[in-house]
Nucleic acid binder design. Structure first.
Length: 420
RNA sequence: GGAGGGGUGGCAGAGCGGUUGAAUGCGCUUGUCUUGAAAACAAGUAUGUCGGUAACGGCAUCGCAGGUUCGAAUCCUGUCCCCUCCGCCA
């Protein structure tokens, strides 16, 4: 959520920033609602102050209230009730108006309305040759991927990994988690996968994106679409003590997404599915450290790609393509020789204070100082089925077997998936 | 699922209709003392919001939401969470 206070102070700044990402925000309405809000608060406070004064006097003097006082106070009570009722609707309106408004892009985010304006920042060393043998053929032939079984159990866009395929995915997860915790200093978290509505709102996934989320009606819990949601909820409503930031968390969880909107796109294989594993990095930092943290996380994710021997490129998303809660995003895409395309395996974003404001996460810079909003950053490190795809497709040998990256061997116990 | 008990400030823990935003203790901050530290003593120590350049003042908040009352942390209703016992179950 954007700061109401800041919007009211400089409405044009916010209008301009949001127009950059193709939004037409109801700024005027917000300013209007806010001034009505202040008016109502003052009315109610005045009546209440008077009522408190009279009540206190009665208590102090240990006497019964006079009939006049009772009549007058009852009237004041009525007025307060009415004003508060209106205030409640104004606050609801404000909330409803503010919640669907996305974060403002940072100034150095390139202009543009869609992915065509994204900027390739750099491309790593390595081959971008292709061989046309996509994973849905290769992995199926190897007996490590069963798309039909996935469809049979759960429907389209579900898949089953078998044998070395399953083991490879587990090994990749474990390897990535180990690097994040042991080398990059993240604390491993194993969070709940069923999430309360408030927490989903806090991350920015609700109310706007409910169509892409699975939900249990009976308990009103939502399935995590990314561990970001849970990690962002870790400190909601809390004040983080001085000296604690930065907090760095990593979690490996499934991600559940309906992907309604993309029906027809990426239908083959397991590039876009309803349930996938992902290792997610998440940081809470002071605003001062926020820019550097984003670059660090990008480097951390790049390191993983490098060590897997994958060719990758870093793409900076333009203003129209960054996510709802993001102020600036880098994607990392790896080259996959079979499907002959760049696969997005990581998306690294700074959400500035947008999420912290939504879910009431604050920190105290130093003892005695007043609270501030931390910045939150998230990034995949990395997304699994896609990395799995790249490993399989890029590791394909002439004889149909697949050689996996050396760094993973300690986690699998073998280096080759033999052709059957 | 059944039966009880409980949710108060950073923590522990009083208060159960009227100077209670809230005793007391611990913790924390600052000061005095000390070569330094500890101890002792003194002062301070929640969050949000409205007005104000500020000093400061008003209002709200004792899990949450309603209700009763001139007045609610205190009474009533609903709800969520936690604990204990029984049942069930990876």
């Amino acid at each position: 959520m954007l700061s109401l206070e800041q919007i009211v102070r400089d409405p044009e700044k916010f209008r301009v920033a949001l127009v950059r990402r193709g939004e037409d925000p109801p700024i005027d309405r917000i300013v209007e609602l806010d001034s009505r809000r202040k008016e109502l608060i003052q009315q109610a406070d005045t009546d209440r102050a008077n009522r408190n004064k009279v009540s206190k006097a009665i208590g102090d003097e240990k006497r019964k209230p006079t009939p006049e006082e009772i009549t007058e106070m009852r009237a004041a009570g009525e007025r307060i009730k009415n004003v508060e009722a209106e205030l409640a609707t104004v606050l609801d309106d404000l909330q409803e108006t503010l919640l669907p408004i996305p974060n403002t892009p940072m100034e150095d985010v390139p202009d543009g309305v869609d992915e065509d304006s994204n900027v390739v920042v750099r491309i790593s060393e390595g081959s971008t040759d292709g061989h046309g043998n996509a994973h849905w053929d290769v992995a199926t032939d190897l007996g490590i991927l069963d798309l039909e079984a996935g469809a049979s159990i759960s429907g389209a866009r579900f898949y089953v990994l078998k044998g070395k395929g399953a083991r490879l995915q587990r090994a990749l997860s474990a390897w990535m988690l180990d690097i994040q915790t042991e080398e990059h200093g993240y604390t491993e978290i194993d969070p709940p996968l069923l999430i309360r509505q408030e927490t989903m709102i806090g991350s920015g996934n609700l109310p706007k994106f409910k169509d892409n989320l699975y939900r249990d009606e009976e308990t009103d819990l939502w399935l995590v679409p990314t561990a970001e949601v849970a990690l962002n909820g870790l400190h909601q409503g809390q004040i983080i003590d001085p000296g604690v930031l930065p907090l760095k968390y990593v979690a490996q969880t499934p991600s559940f997404r309906k992907e309604h909107t993309s029906a027809g796109r990426d239908v083959r294989g397991i590039k876009r599915v309803h349930q996938f594993e992902k290792v997610e990095m998440f940081r809470y930092v002071t605003p001062e450290d926020s820019d550097a943290a984003l670059e660090e996380m990008l480097t951390e994710a790049e390191t993983l790609c490098e060590r897997l021997g994958l060719t990758y490129r870093v793409v900076q998303l333009c203003a129209g393509d960054i996510g709802f809660q993001s102020a600036k995003t880098y994607d990392i895409e790896v080259w996959s020789a079979g499907s002959e395309e760049w696969l997005e395996v990581s998306s690294i974003s700074t959400c500035t204070d947008f999420q912290a404001r939504r879910n009431g996460t604050r920190y105290r810079p130093e003892v005695g100082a007043s609270t501030k909003l931390p910045h939150t950053l998230n990034g995949s490190g990395l997304a699994l089925p896609r990395i799995w795809i790249a490993v399989i497709e890029n590791g394909l040998q002439e004889d149909g077997s697949v050689v996996i990256p050396e760094v993973i061997v300690p986690y699998t116990g073998w280096s080759t998936i033999e052709a059957v």
